[in-house]
């Protein structure tokens, strides 16, 4: 169950974080950005779990993956989806 922190999967998760994190800041649609941010959070959570921080992983999945994403989506209903204005 434990992954080698330097192993392939862990590195892949870190790369995923970097890519989704960067792209989430650049896309022009808030819903897409929120979804990307969700992926970012889940990758982070998986990486935390791989390093034995199961509590942190659980929390990050609940909060970053679910709650923050839901709040972001909810906010689009009262603001705008477009991120260029």
């Amino acid at each position: 169950m434990m992954l080698d922190p330097g192993g392939l999967i862990a590195t892949g998760l870190l790369a995923t974080m970097l890519v989704t994190g960067a792209v989430a800041l650049l896309v022009n649609d808030l819903l897409v950005a929120a979804a990307l941010f969700g992926v970012f959070s889940f990758a982070a959570a998986a990486w935390f779990a791989a390093l034995g921080a199961v509590d942190v992983a659980f929390t990050e999945a609940c909060v970053g993956g679910a709650l923050t994403t839901i709040l972001l989506v909810a906010a689009t209903f009262r603001t705008t989806r477009r991120l260029d204005r």
Partner: peptide, 22 residues
């Protein structure tokens, strides 16, 4: 864009978490 600033803020906070977990 202020929403983007907010997303960036979250990214930065996750970075700190990654650091501590490592």
């Amino acid at each position: 864009n202020l929403v983007r600033k907010l997303l960036a803020m979250n990214v930065m906070q996750v970075a700190v978490i990654v650091f501590f977990i490592a």
